[in-house]
Write a protein that binds this DNA or RNA. Structure first.
Lengths: 230, 230
DNA sequence: TAGGATCCACTGGTGGATCCGT
DNA sequence: ACGGATCCACCAGTGGATCCTA
């Protein structure tokens, strides 16, 4: 059941290509992820099961021995990601000391098994062509710049001033199960402030680019069209 | 339902005196705490409900506005506590910086509503005479000495060398739902060691003494009889 | 007898993504 | 179209005491 190495894992992922989500769910004996607000996250859980990801331990990878993260990426009818991709939650209070090189975000993105899923939620969805990806040096550097920009602002205590507009590829967004969840961190004067928890996300257009070309270095204009790789 | 002040809370607790546990459970529409390993903790939960304790928020008191902690203390046929009383879990890694004055243990013990319960688990148990207690200066000082002794040893990295034999009134004991639960802290050489989580407990003979005389300063010989207060 | 081990309920936080108003 | 808000599953940790041997 468990993948012993990368090649094995990728092979097993690719063996799922073309399979309808509903059929996969039936094979595993679980309810199929339906439509509506009540099924957020079900799709990811299904694919974790299908590939034997270790659902238990947190602050680790989906496949700890392989240091590989599994990311399910829903595609629209044109084959582009419907949404941004969650990376990890951010420890706001350590922001001033945080470095990209040793960050949890970088560890998570170091090796990713992307599994596209085609079709609208609630409709007939099928598994696309899986891809095992690591950032190229150029991609790693770009992600690092976004990281430093964002954590720099948080680090000086300006959490409330952050917006999802910062970062070319990586962005910071609220991450809370309920709107009223609050966490505490240090504000601009060093005083404690309550704020909403945040997480890092990959912009959908970045994910779109690397699914087309794993080595792409997309330039994402603030409000313009995406300029793909080579 | 909620007690507005100490007098109100104590009055409501004393209104329960003499009531059989089974009847109290029936009144609240919950299952009565039976016998056996499967009902640990049920008794405490029952009395929390009966008095409207805020079961939700942790790292706080049972009655947060009043800063009062509720402690259910089962008595044997002679009216003495059957067991030691759990106070709080210990943050092993902060032990070297910990001070009694600002400790969570001291905050918990600052004001305690003791509710004795008479009778053997599984048998006919009834609620005894509740007592609202704060440590006298002498008691506070004695508890502080135990705290410093224990945390001192932990603070120099000798967690594994600790034993429940240390401390006259307050002792350190393992606290883990399963024997295999481990936590990580710094050992003697500053290296990380895995160990079992610990908690502070009040010795049964200390609790026995203050239930008899709230201002008692019992001297508990290592293996001798307890010498009560005045 | 009491030190060390263990059991249950509950929930806050994390990880999985998707919703939805502007 | 996307920034901000939200939903569910799940598990580890906490808080409630009691069990169980040597």
């Amino acid at each position: 059941m468990l993948a012993r190495n990368e090649a094995d894992l990728l092979a097993r992922a690719r063996a799922l290509e073309g399979e309808p989500i509903d059929r996969l769910a039936a094979r595993l004996g679980v309810a199929s992820p339906g439509a509506g607000a009540r099924t957020k996250g079900k799709l990811g859980a299904l694919l974790e099961r299908a590939l034997g990801a270790t659902g238990g331990a947190r602050r680790t990878w989906d496949f700890p021995e392989l240091r590989i993260e599994l990311k399910t990426v829903p595609l629209d009818s044109r084959g582009a990601p419907r949404e941004s991709t969650f990376v990890c939650t951010v420890s706001l209070d350590d922001a001033d000391r945080a470095e990209w090189a040793t960050s949890w975000a970088r560890a998570k993105l170091g090796r990713v098994l992307w599994i596209p899923v085609c079709g609208a939620p609630g409709g007939a969805r099928t598994i696309g062509h899986p891809l095992l990806w690591s950032p190229t040096p150029a991609q790693d550097q770009g992600l690092g710049l976004d990281f430093e920009e964002i954590m720099g602002q948080v680090g000086i205590g300006d959490v409330e001033g952050t917006t999802a507009r910062a970062g070319q590829w990586l962005q910071l967004r609220p991450k809370a199960a309920h709107g009223r969840v609050r966490t505490v961190t240090h504000g601009r004067e060093g005083t404690l402030v309550e704020t909403v928890p945040r997480g890092f996300y990959l912009r959908a257009r970045f994910t779109a680019a690397i699914l087309r070309d794993p080595a792409a270095v997309p330039v994402l204009a603030p409000a313009g069209a995406s300029l793909g790789g080579p």
